[in-house]
Design a protein around this nucleic acid. Sequence first.
DNA 1: TGGTATTAGTAATTCGTATTAGCAGTGTAA
DNA 2: TTACACTGCTAATACGAATTACTAATACCA
Lengths: 352, 352
Amino acid sequence: MAEEPRSNRRPSMSDVARLAGVSQTTVSFILNDTPGNSIPHETRERVLAAIRELDYRPNVSARNLRTQSTNLIGYGFDDPGGVVSHPVLDQFLYSAILSLEEAGYHLLTFVAGQRTDTAVYEELHRRGQVSGYLVANTNDNDPRIACLLANNIPFASFGRANDEWAFAWADVDGISGMTQVVAHLAARGHRRIGLITWPEGSKAGSHREEGYAEGLRAAGIAPDPAWLFRGENSVQTGAAGLSHLLTLPDEQRPTAVACVSDLIAVGVLNAAAAAGLAVGRELAVTGYDDSALAQFLHPPLTSVRQPIAAIGRHLVAALLAQIRHDPIPVQGVLLEPELIARASSGELGIRN
Amino acid sequence: MAEEPRSNRRPSMSDVARLAGVSQTTVSFILNDTPGNSIPHETRERVLAAIRELDYRPNVSARNLRTQSTNLIGYGFDDPGGVVSHPVLDQFLYSAILSLEEAGYHLLTFVAGQRTDTAVYEELHRRGQVSGYLVANTNDNDPRIACLLANNIPFASFGRANDEWAFAWADVDGISGMTQVVAHLAARGHRRIGLITWPEGSKAGSHREEGYAEGLRAAGIAPDPAWLFRGENSVQTGAAGLSHLLTLPDEQRPTAVACVSDLIAVGVLNAAAAAGLAVGRELAVTGYDDSALAQFLHPPLTSVRQPIAAIGRHLVAALLAQIRHDPIPVQGVLLEPELIARASSGELGIRN
DNA sequence: TGGTATTAGTAATTCGTATTAGCAGTGTAA
DNA sequence: TTACACTGCTAATACGAATTACTAATACCA
């Protein structure tokens, strides 16, 4: 029997070569524009025609094996699964995926289980499944970052960790964001400003708290510990926080409440409505993240918009540079957020 | 020069074999428990010890190339990127990832661009990057499903499409869900029940509308077209919907409003508060999805809980069966949702 | 005229694993 | 005693592409 091109198999480079009457090497040269090889136009056309005819596609596994590389980047979910869906992370991932795809990479998502369980990060890399990682939601002494650094695995992180660790990160300046919020509120005449924030121990939280303190200082306001309320990132926390603040005596009770997330602010808005308080007139409320909700709430929520898409693009660039061993210094970058003023912090166009 | 085990390379099976004094074949047999081969305990131990000593990990690309397989499943985001974050999908993905990982698979996420652009689906599969797909958010004539069926690519979908297409899907019975809602409202004495739903053309939407109609019929209520309001899935739509319903004359104005999503219900809750309506007492409101928000809203939101994690597990099982060519019939399965009654549809424990 | 470059390729090897075919030695049933 | 099966392995090959090393033919220059 003659050698039939096994037709139930996807065509390989050799099939293309046979059809075009050249060697497999030549096909490879053409497909990769391998430098140092001259292929006349006519031959190239013949090969390209064969590729089109067979509808050939290169095999990813073969290429990865040969080049000892990977076209995958890992991303670990540590969230216990959509219990709280995280718009900011969703947006970050989306922009990261887009940037990765432009460079021919894809994102492999996995569940990281316990935050402290870094085995998966080592494992996926050692098996040659991923070339590096994107990490989000970082903290001081973050075990994932410690692990990646120790194993010399390329990564880039959305968020900082210990200052003495040198790695590629990008972050939004939470200090600046919250300072802007307080300045905005102070400019509208508020002198007693509450803050509803997360439990202690989160890097992002402490930055925003620092910005709050800085804002008060800049406005010449003496901070009052009673203005601070802490809770998990939930609507409930916002409601509980407002209840707490409303129990304070008149002369101590805040006229404005800043929240470290829109989700918490939604709780404040709800509770204010339930208490018969007119938000924007009797009470100013601000959120953080400028999520899709914010502009459609009643009243529309003043919030802080973070350049999330830019973070995604930046981190992907930094990560791929490491993987390619580009001589680009591994370093962090801090981006500025932008205050989006809406009615919840006082009617637009009206200064009191 | 003697042959040094090149130390800056990750150890391969041959390195293990050399250290254990056996052939690479034997190591492979041991690692894969290849049937039909007898390896005495002592040899096995020796090889396992070598594996431990070298901290060997098999190379994914090599294995995939040799076995002509893949340990990846694709999932395409069609959402334009976190503009609206989708808690149900997040939850679905999380449970799917967990199930996949149990079976040694991982999830590759990509951006599908236009819903009609199915090229990526073909491409990733033909390049041998993924073994199949999980598809969500389906619709009638869904081009993605048409493409996957036409190319005979394994997949499983969260949601149905054309009834005449045979493929593996799992879905939650939206008809049942909304029927339960209306029955619940009718049982509390409501005779005029509004529905705020999505624009026409979505499969999920029309099921829920059908359930609404069915619920009215079962309660002996004549439907009124004026009770129906349509809009995108947003808080804004809820607010606009309630405004519309409140413009109706007294004898036509609904005393209860069912929404096809919690997000929309949040808008209704906000608008009701703004209008001075006491939700739960003067107006009943229900959501759908039982998202994390629901129980913390004011008042807590009656909603419909869908067995999302079960869907994820089921679809992964169905998909992997196809990939393994298990003789399991390719078919769909419809799961029952559960009504979670809370205060927004009338004070708990009180029947009027 | 010889020597070197350039052009247009090809053959052979490699990446790391899975798998097929087979071999030497022992036991065992006919 | 032969045939056969089983044990405990190994050698060789294939998967599909990238890469290195090479060749044959022509061109160019002195």
